[in-house]
Simulated scan of single mutants.
Amino acid sequence: MKKLKSIRFWFIQTFVMMAFISTLIIFVGLQIYLVVSDSAILDIRMTLWLSLFALVVFLLVGGYFGIKGSYLIKGRLTDIHLFVSTLRSGNTTDKIPIYEKDEIGLVSEELNLLADYIQEQKQSMQRLADKKTSLAQSAHAAAVMEERQRLARDLHDVVSQQLFALGMMSSATLRLFELDREKAKEQLEEINRIAANAQGEMRALLLHLRPIQLSNERLSDGIIKLLQELKGKTNLHFQASIDDIENISKATEEHLFRIIQEALSNILRHAEAKKIKITLTEKENTIYLFIADDGKGFNPSVERIASYGLKTMRERCEEVGGVFNIRSKEKEGTYIDIRVPLTRESMKND
């Protein structure tokens, strides 16, 4: 990777080049003076010393102003760089200090206006999410019926077929046991695998049997209750740190709860994990949600395209103005990091 040069280097280089050029101009001027003047009081040796003295003076003065100017410009550009990094991470509340009404000052002012615009867009998205949640509540009965139908299809398409396969294989194994014990052992291992898959599917479907809404519970209470239910029904070990977040809109609560529900469902179905870590906290008007498991992981660039669950989680996060990041590697688990802004306007709406 090519090493970046500091702007201070370019400033000092420019002033040094100016010092040499200025010295060369003085030296050439003195030589012309010696050639033209009949009564010159200088000789070639003195012109060389004068040129050398001028070079030293120019270098000192140029170096001083080069370093001073580079510190000023680099400091202002560093402020812009840090602000852009902060803006990219989702924080739109900070502003760049504007020292001068010059070109850099105009860029800083435009970036501040851009941050305000992004903040307004996030607030608009949260207002739309609130309206959408309100409409969803009015259609609650229809959503419950649709969810029941979906669960019935999943039970028929996945679990019932696996149970049917278990019955067929167990009957065949009983007949084969006296004839070929080795073959019977292989079929018993296959039966065990199918039973484990069916159990994982059932656990995942249990998550979707909860109401679509939080039923007027706080987000922290709903998450804790969900984890307690899973802890009693599975062998998973949960490490949870759930803070009670005040002044959070209903839409944000609903979307975060459904994201956690979908993430746990994916872990139960596919991850083969033993430990799950969940952290929910709020800092500087930003909600931080972290979900991790020690399962088998996957290649996000290959499987994400076909993963409806991941797509749904990302869409829910972006719908409330959040940032969704996922990291996973085969045999090294999966890590989901979510940041959602908690704006003052959403506080008032509650």
Score class of each variant (00 low, 15 high):
residue 271 A to Q: 08
residue 272 E to A: 14
residue 273 A to W: 05
residue 273 A to M: 01
residue 273 A to D: 10
residue 275 K to F: 09
residue 276 I to L: 00
residue 276 I to C: 11
residue 281 T to R: 13
residue 282 E to K: 09
residue 284 E to S: 13
residue 284 E to D: 15
residue 285 N to L: 14
residue 286 T to F: 11
residue 288 Y to E: 14
residue 288 Y to P: 03
residue 290 F to R: 12
residue 290 F to G: 00
residue 290 F to S: 10
residue 291 I to L: 05
residue 291 I to T: 01
residue 292 A to R: 09
residue 293 D to M: 13
residue 294 D to T: 05
residue 294 D to L: 01
residue 294 D to M: 07
residue 295 G to L: 04
residue 295 G to R: 06
residue 297 G to Y: 10
residue 297 G to V: 02
residue 299 N to G: 07
residue 299 N to P: 06
residue 299 N to E: 15
residue 300 P to R: 04
residue 301 S to P: 08
residue 301 S to R: 07
residue 302 V to Y: 05
residue 302 V to L: 14
residue 304 R to Y: 10
residue 304 R to E: 15
residue 304 R to P: 00
residue 306 A to H: 10
residue 306 A to D: 14
residue 308 Y to K: 13
residue 308 Y to T: 13
residue 309 G to N: 12
residue 310 L to T: 11
residue 310 L to A: 10
residue 312 T to N: 10
residue 313 M to D: 03
residue 313 M to W: 02
residue 313 M to G: 01
residue 314 R to H: 13
residue 316 R to M: 06
residue 316 R to K: 09
residue 319 E to A: 08
residue 319 E to Y: 07
residue 321 G to C: 06
residue 322 G to M: 02
residue 323 V to P: 04
residue 324 F to Q: 04
residue 325 N to E: 15
residue 325 N to L: 11
residue 325 N to A: 13
residue 326 I to R: 09
residue 327 R to I: 14
residue 328 S to T: 07
residue 328 S to C: 04
residue 328 S to A: 14
residue 328 S to H: 02
